[in-house]
C-alpha cells in the first residue's frame, strides 16, 4: 500500500506536471527548431511570439465568453485558438515582410538575424504589455477536473490523491495531435518536403525550382500556429503573464538545443528531458521517500535539490552540459 501511495504521489507531483510541461516546451521548441532549420537563425522573439498569440486568443476568448458562446465541456479558448493562430500568422508575416526580408535579401550573416530577432522581441514585448498589461490573466472557464483528489481517494482508498485537471489532459492530447499533424506534413506532403529540402540544402533547393519566399512564408505560418498553441496551452494550464512567457525562452531554447537544433524529433525529446529534469530537481521527495523507506530511515529534510525559484538554473545547466559534451544534441542536429 505504501508503495502504491509513493507511486501516486510521484505521479501527481512529478510525472503528470512534467508530462504536461514537457508537451508545452516541445511545441515551443518545435517552432524554434523549424526557424533554425529553415531560416537559419535562432529566433529570440519566439517566447514573445507565444505571448502575442496567447494574448490574441485570450482577447477573443473573453469576447466569446461575454457573448455567451462556449465550446461545451472544452475551454472556450480552444474555440478562439484558430482565430488567434490566424492573427498571429498575419502578424509574423508582417514582421517578416517589414524586418527579416530586408536582411534576407542582403544575405546577412545568421548572427545579424539573431540580433534583429532580439529587436523584434523587444517590440513584441512592448506591444503585448501595452495591449493586455503586465499582470496575470486567467481565461480558463474555471477549474475542471478529469479526476479530482477526492474522487481518486474514494475510488482507490489510497491515502494519496491524484488530480488530473482538464487542461492538463487537453494539453497532452492537443500536443499529440499537433505533433502528428506536423510530422505528417513534413514527411508526406509536398510543401513539407520542400521545407525539408530547403533546410537540407538551400542551393540545391533553389536550383530545383523551389520558391524560397513561399517556403519562408509557410514556415512563419506554421511557427505562428505552434507558438500560439504552445502559449495558449501553457496559459490554460497556469496563467498568462507576459513576463513568464519571456522567461520561457530559456527552457525552450534548452529543449531545442538538447534535442539537436533543426531536428523536429529532437525538439520533442528535448522538451521532455528539460521538463522532467526541472520538475524532479525542484520537487521535494520527502513524501515519496517517506512511503518507501522504513521509518528509521525517513528523511527529516524536504529532499529538494533546488528551490523552485531556481528552476531556470536547471535548463541552464543542462544546456551547458550538452553544449560542452555533445554540441549537436541528442539527435543529430546542426552544431550550434
Amino acid at each position: 500500500m505504501d508503495f502504491l501511495n509513493a507511486i501516486v504521489a510521484l505521479a501527481n507531483f512529478v510525472i503528470i506536471p512534467a508530462t504536461v510541461y514537457g508537451s508545452q516546451l516541445a511545441l515551443g521548441a518545435l517552432g524554434v527548431t523549424l526557424i533554425y532549420g529553415i531560416l537559419r537563425f535562432s529566433n529570440f522573439a519566439h517566447g514573445d511570439t507565444m505571448a502575442f498569440g496567447t494574448m490574441v486568443t485570450i482577447l477573443i476568448t473573453w469576447w466569446f465568453q461575454s457573448m455567451g458562446i462556449n465550446f461545451g465541456i472544452l475551454p472556450t479558448a480552444l474555440l478562439a485558438l484558430p482565430f488567434g493562430i490566424a492573427i498571429t500568422s498575419l502578424f509574423l508575416l508582417g514582421t517578416d515582410r517589414v524586418v527579416y526580408k530586408f536582411y534576407r535579401e542582403k544575405k546577412s550573416e545568421p548572427v545579424i538575424f539573431v540580433i534583429v530577432s532580439l529587436g523584434v522581441m523587444f517590440m513584441m514585448n512592448g506591444i503585448v504589455r501595452f495591449i493586455i498589461g503586465t499582470g496575470d490573466q486567467r481565461f480558463a472557464d474555471g477549474e475542471r477536473f478529469i479526476i479530482s483528489t477526492r474522487e481518486f481517494k474514494a475510488m482507490t482508498g489510497l491515502q494519496e490523491g491524484l488530480a488530473i485537471r482538464f487542461t492538463q489532459g487537453i494539453t497532452v492530447v492537443t500536443a499529440i495531435i499537433v505533433v502528428a499533424a506536423l510530422f505528417y506534413f513534413l514527411n508526406r506532403t509536398r510543401t513539407g518536403k520542400s521545407m525539408r529540402a530547403f533546410s537540407d540544402n538551400e542551393d540545391l533547393a533553389l536550383l530545383s525550382g523551389i520558391n524560397p519566399e513561399r517556403v519562408v512564408m509557410v514556415t512563419w505560418i506554421i511557427v505562428a500556429g505552434l507558438a500560439t498553441i504552445a502559449g495558449v496551452l501553457y496559459g490554460l494550464d497556469k496563467t498568462f503573464k507576459p513576463f513568464t512567457y519571456f522567461q520561457l525562452l530559456l527552457p525552450i531554447f534548452a529543449s531545442a538545443i538538447v534535442g539537436g537544433l533543426g531536428n523536429p524529433l529532437g525538439a520533442i525529446a528535448g522538451g521532455f528531458v528539460i521538463a522532467f529534469s526541472e520538475v524532479s530537481v525542484t520537487y521535494a521527495f520527502k513524501k515519496v521517500l517517506g512511503y518507501l523507506l522504513p521509518e528509521s530511515l525517513e528523511p527529516d529534510s524536504l529532499v529538494q535539490l533546488l528551490s523552485t525559484d531556481y528552476k531556470f538554473a536547471v535548463s541552464f545547466v543542462i544546456l551547458i552540459i550538452v553544449l560542452l559534451v555533445k554540441p549537436t544534441g541528442l539527435f543529430k542536429g546542426k552544431s550550434v
Binding site: 518536403k193 537540407d200 509557410v218
Partner: peptide, 21 residues
C-alpha cells in the same frame, strides 16, 4: 537532399507543383 530517398530527391524537382501551397 541527404535525408530523402533517391526517388524523393527526383520527385522534389518540378517547381510549382499543386501541393506546394
Amino acid at each position: 537532399f541527404s535525408s530523402m530517398t533517391v526517388r524523393e530527391n527526383l520527385m522534389m524537382v518540378p517547381g510549382g507543383q499543386t501541393g506546394e501551397t
